[in-house]
């Protein structure tokens, strides 16, 4: 059970670190809030339009906010040398990666999910739609973190790393965006959201299986 213990150690460590540096957590959250609040200002306060675009806006904002948080995911570990120690730890690297992603999601993804229904109210979404928004984000944002970790690992220590991460990761996240926003839209239009949510769950499982392996490989390449 050393593997599970190491996983837990990494999750706890990163959560403690996040709590001691709250700015990272809050800036991601407020970025999300601000982006969502900007759309009515750009489009106009017409409630019918806003109700229509709400799922897409919230989802795109969540996608961008999670990109923003990714840059620091492995960068600090690389700078202070803890990354090499993780690579040299007697546990498989992908387990530690999974721990890091889990902590990252808990610190930056979960607050965002919790905040989303409130923002949905600004767009006059119905209660069932808000519920589906919550579920879709709950299934989708962990997958975003998992996929994003690959990009974060590939771009460690590169000039303009943040923009580059978005360039690499955003296209890969498109399916999640489609099914995530689609679930809410399907609910609003009365088509039923189940298919979308199942697809999101399937994508999450796939990301859970493959992304940590790719991230671990990328970390080994970047840490050389």
């Amino acid at each position: 059970m050393a593997m599970f213990d190491a996983f837990r150690a990494i999750v706890l460590r990163d959560l403690v670190l996040a709590m001691r540096r709250k700015t990272d957590v809050f800036s991601t959250l407020f970025f999300f809030v601000i982006v969502v609040s900007l759309f009515p200002l750009g489009i106009g306060p017409e409630m019918n339009t806003l109700r229509l675009i709400a799922p897409g806006v919230v989802w795109v904002a969540a996608l961008l906010a999670s990109m923003l948080a990714l840059e620091r995911l492995f960068a600090t570990d690389h700078e202070d040398g803890t990354l090499e120690q993780m690579i040299l730890a007697p546990q498989p690297l992908f387990v530690l990666v999974l721990g890091k992603v889990a902590a990252h999601w808990l610190a930056t993804g979960l607050p965002l999910v919790a905040m989303a229904p409130l923002l949905g109210l600004q767009y006059d979404l119905s209660v069932p739609a808000l519920e589906i928004l919550l579920y879709s984000l709950l299934l989708g944002t962990p997958a975003l973190s998992l996929i994003g970790a690959i990009g974060a690992a590939l771009t460690i220590g590169l000039r303009g790393g943040g923009v580059l991460i978005s360039l690499l990761v955003l296209p890969l996240c498109i399916p999640i965006l489609i099914f995530g926003a689609g679930a809410v839209e399907a609910n609003v239009s009365g088509l039923g959201e189940q298919g979308h949510l199942f697809m999101l769950a399937a994508l999450l499982v796939l990301a859970l299986l493959l992304a940590p392996l790719a991230t671990a490989a990328a970390l080994r390449v970047s840490a050389e």
Partner: peptide, 27 residues
């Protein structure tokens, strides 16, 4: 590093291409 990082990205991408195609068609 460029070679190997690019290779990982290309492999991740090629796994994603069918998923992207499928999801875009669905959408």
């Amino acid at each position: 590093r460029a070679d190997r990082a690019g290779a990982i990205l290309a492999l991740v991408g090629v796994v994603n291409v069918p998923i992207i195609y499928y999801s875009v068609t669905w959408w």
